[in-house]
Amino acid sequence: MRELTIALAGNPNVGKSTVFNALTGLHQHVGNWPGKTVERKEGRLILGAHQITVVDLPGTYSLAARSLEEQIARDFIVRERPDAVVNVLDAANLERNLYLTAQLLEAEARLVLALNMADVAAARGLRLNPEALAAALGAPVVVMTASKGQGLAELKAALRDLVAASGRRAAAATLKEVAR
């Protein structure tokens, strides 16, 4: 079975580390000092028969390579081409967070959107429409509150679907190679 890689991308302070911990079970300090996640953090996630490496990218507001963090995130997404990118967003500040999403989309990353901090958004009276977002982006959208463990099962399910599809695509690609 081919080794799969998933990257976590998102703005700083959106709960990315919490999502990472929940996915991998790896203990990790959650803090918000700028530059804290500059080093690469990896964890393992078992999804069905798949062993997946989860890479926590540094929190960035964009993918323009202006800072070390942005450079790291961009190079990983563009050059390493992870099998999927989980884009964690602060649902309470959706518009600002979507700029990174637009750039990820442009970099042809296979996205799963995790609209985190849904509780804060609800408290501010914001009504999310994940269906519309998913339709507009052609990517699965999960609404979650990672700090309370809500939505994690849905995120894993979305990843499992994506992995299955990716497996089928890989198989199809292999078949094409063979046919040639």
Binding site: A102, A118, A134, G138, A139, V141, V143, Q150, G151, L155
Partner: peptide
């Protein structure tokens, strides 16, 4: 919490 998957082609940024 909801999860939505749609197989629509990506509405790329134009």
């Amino acid at each position: 919490m909801t999860a939505v998957t749609l197989a629509a082609p990506g509405a790329a940024l134009r």
